[in-house]
């Protein structure tokens, strides 16, 4: 059971930890206090328990598509929040202190939603085995190992981001968040295909021979950018679209605010 447990927990923890880490490092970079983060952790943890306990009812809603709809909704919600968050970060770079409370709330909600989604799966998994003492020890140890690896990667990434030269921090964080956000969209698309809300097609390619999804690197890439060995054309198209929308929005914001920053206040 150990290996299974490690894989399940690692995948969920890694997905949440990447987002958490990048946002936390960004928050430190901008100079926000970390109270929002603790609040997001608490709310996300609480939410995932509520979600886990009501999963049966949620699954049965909307003709048995409730689970996918809610998860897809959460993913799209996180995408939107990340779009706002990164834009505000770019604006903040040129105008420090601009709309910090909105930024804080966006990050809080993004982290909370991420923990809610990933935490619920961990909760259900551990809850399933806590009544089976023969397996629970093994499951728990696997969970500890998975969580340990996931959080360690997160912690090292956090200090890596903080150690970056300041002029590159914003760019690298924005690129990372764009990739993560694209992954969110891709997962949402996947879920909508699963319930037939979006058409399913023949896969465009198959890279599973090159990199299996269940390998460690595959899991890492899945957590970062929702790596899919055999995506359908629609998935690829929407993934590219989500990346393009975010990149263009950030580029545009950057362009507008940089030109504003260069023109002194005389114009007003």
């Amino acid at each position: 059971m150990l290996l299974t447990s490690v894989i399940i927990i690692l995948r969920e923890v890694l997905e949440a930890a990447l987002l958490l880490t990048i946002l936390l490092a960004m928050s430190r970079f901008i100079g926000l206090n970390t109270r929002w983060f603790l609040l997001a952790l608490a709310l996300g943890g609480l939410g995932s328990i509520i979600y886990g306990n009501n999963l049966a009812a949620i699954s049965n809603a909307f003709d048995g598509t409730g689970q996918e709809l809610l998860n897809a909704g959460l993913h799209i919600f996180i995408y939107a929040l990340l779009l706002i968050t990164t834009s505000l970060m770019v604006i903040n770079y040129y105008r420090p202190g601009c709309r910090l409370s909105l930024l804080k709330w966006c990050m809080l909600l993004a982290v909370m939603s991420s923990i809610l989604r990933e935490g619920a799966e961990i909760y259900i998994y551990l809850y399933t085995f806590h009544t089976q003492p023969a397996l629970f020890g093994s499951v728990l140890k696997g969970a500890l190992i998975g969580a340990g690896i996931g959080f360690s990667i997160g912690a090292l990434l956090y200090y890596l981001l903080l150690a970056l030269p300041e002029r590159h921090t914003l760019l690298i964080t924005c690129i990372l968040l764009t990739i993560v956000a694209g992954g969110m969209c891709s997962q949402a698309v996947q879920l909508l295909i699963q319930i037939d809300w979006l058409p399913s097609q023949m896969p465009l390619w198959d890279t599973s021979a090159l990199l299996r999804e269940d390998s460690l690197v595959g899991q890492l890439l899945y957590a970062l950018m929702s790596y899919e060995a055999s995506p359908t054309p629609l998935e690829v198209f929407l993934y590219a679209m989500s990346l393009a929308v975010m990149a263009l929005t950030l580029g545009f914001t950057h362009y507008v605010y940089r030109s504003h920053a260069h023109v002194p206040a005389v114009a007003h």
């Binding site: 999963l55 049966a56 699954s59 049965n60 003709d63 048995g64 598509t65 689970q67 996918e68 799966e121 259900i124 998994y125 399933t128 996947q190 295909i193 699963q194 319930i195 037939d196 399913s200 097609q201 023949m202 599973s208 299996r212 999804e213 269940d214 899919e228 060995a229 055999s230 995506p231």
Partner: peptide, 27 residues
């Protein structure tokens, strides 16, 4: 609960105890 999962089909869904789940696959 059980989680139906397939890397080859790109499907993943948690099915709670005593419940049923509908998953579209293919073509």
């Amino acid at each position: 609960p059980e989680e139906f999962e397939s890397y080859e089909l790109n499907r993943e869904k948690v099915i709670m105890g005593g419940q049923k789940a509908i998953i579209f696959i293919g073509p």
